[in-house]
Amino acid sequence: MQELQTVEKVILKENTKMFQFKENCRRFIRSNPIGTISIGFILLVILISVLAPIIAPYDPVLQNRQSILIGPNGTHILGTDELGRDVFSRIVYGSRISLLVGFSAVVFSMIFGIFFGVVSGYFGGVIDMIVQRIMDAIMSIPSLILALFIAALLGPAIQNVIIALVIVETPRFARIVRGEMLRIRETNYVEASRSIGSSVFRIIWKHAIPNMGAPIIVLASLAFGQSIIAEASLSFLGIGTPPPNPSWGLMLSDASRFMETAPWLVLFPGLALALCVLAFNLLGDALRDFLDPKISSKK
């Protein structure tokens, strides 16, 4: 009997959480067509990057001296570059780098941001002072210039680009998390939990972090887009992804010399980059509207 009850409990719990998730998805699709399209596009990009070896017709770094700077045609649907590499294959493989950089930068800056934000917001006082002043200092430098500086210091490599972006993005997360932490620290359910004897760790883990999800998700989605564009910018300037890796920024950089003779070299990687960033930004906006109860109730 007892065991039955636990099973029943687990199932019921799964049901409601699953049900709620499905219900929320349905509501999101109905109220946010643009956000839904963005999610669709992002999923497509992820799929392409995962299946890159199957989708790409050529090796992205394979040079072919016979066919350089050919415009889009039957064999090379998006044409070839100055070394005869297939542009379509390079764009497909390039999505891997963009997503890798975006994802790692967001995940790590989120982890560090949450850590610093929570510590700063919960304990306050001198710790808060010190952490926030450091964050202020980082934020006071224009982010691309800072990333440029760090990347230049560490040398061109994908992991260095990620490190630079994490340093740039962390303060934004820390700021938002600190604000949320200050709010949540004063809520009654935190006090209620303190009154039953919960530890600090428990309060932060069980009560604070689950309740600051909405702004973090929104920020993460916006930061994802920004990281992709920052990676492209750094690669464009030659201190990001090292050649011959197919990064979109690097492709744009190489193509700039042939802008007039071979415009497809600029057009297609540029388009891929723009659409990808746009999708993340639109998703961020849609999520912000959706997750903010004040805005969504007006509709």
Binding site: K9, A192, I196, R202, K206, P210
Partner: peptide
């Protein structure tokens, strides 16, 4: 309204003191 964590189920809320102690 505000003393119950909105993201926890009733079972988790009532179970919390049992877990803590």
């Amino acid at each position: 309204y505000s003393t119950l964590n909105p993201r926890m189920t009733v079972g988790d809320i009532i179970g919390e003191p049992l877990e803590v102690h």
